[in-house]
Design a protein around this nucleic acid. Structure first.
Lengths: 185, 185
DNA sequence: CATGCGAGTGAGTGACCGATCACACCCCCG
DNA sequence: CGGGGGTGTGATCGGTCACTCACTCGCATG
């Protein structure tokens, strides 16, 4: 069933392929979004044929949703880990979650991917996945940080601002507006 | 040149058509975005043939950019008017801009359209237009309201949060996360 | 070695979409 | 009334895209 770890396989298992496809797809979808990126580009980036991509993900939409779920789970896990570590070390939770947040910002494709996921929310399945992700994340932040509703709201608001600033490439601009809005990151 | 106002014209001028196309396009593009919406749908919504749409806007991208510019100008004008009115009435500027802001929120297509415009920022021309719009808006808010950089940042951050909440249809949800994030609108 | 199964692909197919073009129609002006 | 310029359309084209199918190959097992 499971090949030994020392195996010199040239072929991958389907699960390994799915994972590497999702990894490649994240970088591609993050630039042009669900409707803007052809499946051929993703297949190329993943190093497989387009035909095989469609065997592993029966539909472009299903691939996209799997990617959205993966990103949401990654964000969720990052925050949960940070909170758990702080709690175990007897440190304050709130700054730890802030730090985890800043760490996430380093990944530009995550921010852009999230923005495109919001834009793709016209699709029912995408919207359901995003709502589910937000629900879990808000719950986690509230429970772990003990912040008030207004604090939580401002926390997420600044996150969304960073999404759009990433899309506009504010970091590459030294214009006044970019300085003002990016200040504090 | 200009037809008399009492004319019983059945044909429109090109400028009138362009305007009604942009009006129709806003509602359509706001749902599925630049890459997700076919030009045929816009032509249908505007009540003209697709061929004529392409005569009035030589390219789908140019139509989209004209729309983005129109939206930006509308936002800009709304804020400027609110500030001017408050100033003339001797009232405080900052609450007036907040009120103008809330008024803008009533138009869901404006929020969704802006979100899709951010997502379309991979296109150089779209990004340039959005940067220009943001630059002018930040400048206006700063100058008129006299807010600090941090206040301006938080102001825009909450605006961007409302964009994504509109995309996720948080207003139609009575879930906890929606209550928390929408509270105060 | 034989055989069976999962990994992987080249070559399509039908549908759709952006863009074009030849042409019809309306309206104003001399 | 005739003609010219602006409004508007039907038909279509070239290209692209999501998705399919028939097929090959690699590898573990007996």
């Amino acid at each position: 069933m499971t090949p030994p770890a020392t195996s010199t396989r040239t072929l991958s298992t389907a699960d390994e392929r799915r994972e590497s496809i999702l990894e490649a797809a994240q970088g591609i979808f993050a630039v042009r979004g669900l409707h803007g990126t052809p499946t051929m580009e993703i297949a190329k980036a993943a190093g497989i044929s387009q035909a095989y991509l469609f065997r592993l993900f029966p539909t472009k939409a299903e691939l996209y949703i799997a990617l959205v779920r993966r990103c949401n789970e990654r964000i969720q896990r990052t925050f949960a880990d940070a909170a758990a570590e702080a709690r175990a070390a007897g440190e304050e939770i709130r700054p730890a979650m802030g730090a985890a947040y800043v760490g996430l910002l380093a990944d530009r494709t995550l921010l852009l991917g999230q923005l495109h996921a919001f834009a793709a929310c016209d699709d029912d399945a995408v919207r359901a996945e995003m709502q589910r992700g937000f629900a879990r994340l808000v719950e986690l932040v509230e429970r772990e940080s003990g912040a008030t509703a207004e604090e939580v709201r401002t926390f997420f608001a600044h996150g969304m601002l960073l999404n759009v600033l990433a899309a506009m490439r504010a970091e590459d601009s030294d214009a006044h507006w970019a300085q003002v809005l990016l200040n504090g990151c």
